[in-house]
């Protein structure tokens, strides 16, 4: 595998890919860049939190600080939950902050 990967690099495969990313439309590049750099755990949230029309909170209307505060409160037990307390306890303060900022940036990017 290593051999074939280094061969691809030499053949200009990677530079071509990077160039393609750079030339893509700005909105697309921003969305793709966010996805590419999503912090650990962040992409799982959209499995439950989507558009409106459900009892599950919509995250795209919240700021990074609001998401972070809620997650910290779920994690400490300061805020009641049916399920988010069990999820929030799996993330450190730094991870929660990174996820909150990423979700807020993503909602900003899609507006």
């Amino acid at each position: 595998m290593m051999r074939s990967r280094s061969r691809l690099v030499m053949q200009g495969f990677l530079p071509a890919c990077l160039l393609w990313f750079a030339l893509a439309s700005p909105a697309f590049a921003q969305g793709a860049g966010l996805l590419l750099n999503a912090p650990a755990g962040a992409t799982a949230c959209s499995g439950c939190h989507g558009a409106s029309g459900s009892a599950l909170p919509v995250l795209s209307t919240l700021t990074a600080a609001q998401i972070e505060d809620a997650m910290v409160a779920f994690s400490s037990g300061a805020r009641d939950a049916t399920l988010m307390n069990r999820i929030a306890k799996g993330f450190s303060a730094d991870e929660i902050r990174a996820i909150a900022q990423w979700i807020a940036a993503q909602s900003g990017a899609s507006k």
Partner: peptide, 23 residues
Amino acid sequence: AKACAQAIALLTSGKAPGEPKLI
């Protein structure tokens, strides 16, 4: 699926994927 897609995109652009956290 989402973590795997991210890992593949990173691998194909020559970067090492970080450790994921999954729910």
